[in-house]
Amino acid sequence: MSFLRLDGLTLAYGKTPAVEGLNLDIHRGELIALLGPSGCGKTTTMRAIAGLMPVRAGQITLDGRDITRVAANRREVGLVFQSYALFPHLTVFENVAFGLRLKGMSGKALEDKVMAAIASVGLTPFAQRKTPDMSGGQQQRVALARSMVMEPKVLMLDEPLSNLDARLRLEMRTELQRVQKKTGLTMIFVTHDQIEALALADRIVVMRNGAIEQIGTPEDIYNRPESAFVADFVGFETIFALKDGAMVTKGEPVPVPDAPAGAAALAWRPRAVTFGEGRFEGTVLSSSFAGSAREYLLDTPLGPVKAEVDAALPAHDLGATVRFDLPVATAAALRRAE
């Protein structure tokens, strides 16, 4: 039974549609990543779940209750904004205490609970600081503590890692995972970075143009993308559509007699392309060294092809002619060619 259910959710800004007919079932305690390019409707979907955005059509059910028309301040849903949205006139303590005070909590009980939340994000020494004096990573932790202390049924985070530098990002990633495992909180986080989604989520929801493109475990999404869009997003760089048993290429169609049944396209990661031998020939357009591997971009009669080989092998110069192959055995079969 699903804990949070979006049923035909349709959202719009004025006459501009933003999300159309979105269906999603999330289980209690799940960590869900909303993954997709900028503008695909991730923030809009979260705002609707939080009650900040009117629902045009469809239904939102949380813990057995229809909350589609419930006011935002009665939803028991947490949202950590991309900008954190801390209250600059209040201290860290008062930011975290804000929601509890509105619930009528006060005195020792309030103080204990707030300080525990502040401690859980490692900010105890900063409790009396004003939030504008803190670093981005610290502000983020305050925002997290402020939402978590309310014990929401669902905690949503909008691009929680995008404003942090590389080191902090990794640290925060671990932190989020730890918090989620410890509290068993149902969490949804937004990202446009596939690595983050793959590393953190129980399930990934890939969105495109206001609709869901694919839902699956990180393994599903990474190894078995259903469409060219998802494949491209998770690093399949060479994709050809299939038509009448042949790959549609820039030049002549290439027959693929052993294509899996029902496949609409075939996709290869650079690793999956056979390099140095095979049926096809291309010239090296560019090559880049990436530590243990070397990546070649080939100009071929089929179209551009990206291949990756062991860096220990001798390098090919720009303009060199090399043979390659696209074995069906190493390809992902896509159900949709778009």
């Binding site: 301040n73 949202l79 904004f81 949205a85 804000f98 509105l102």
Partner: peptide, 23 residues
């Protein structure tokens, strides 16, 4: 003043007027 601050207050349980007065 960014409007998301008020939205944050509302999600934490404030009414619209409460968010205006407190934030």
């Amino acid at each position: 003043l960014r409007s998301d601050m008020e939205e944050a207050a509302v999600i934490l349980g404030a009414s619209r007027i409460g968010a205006f007065v407190r934030v």
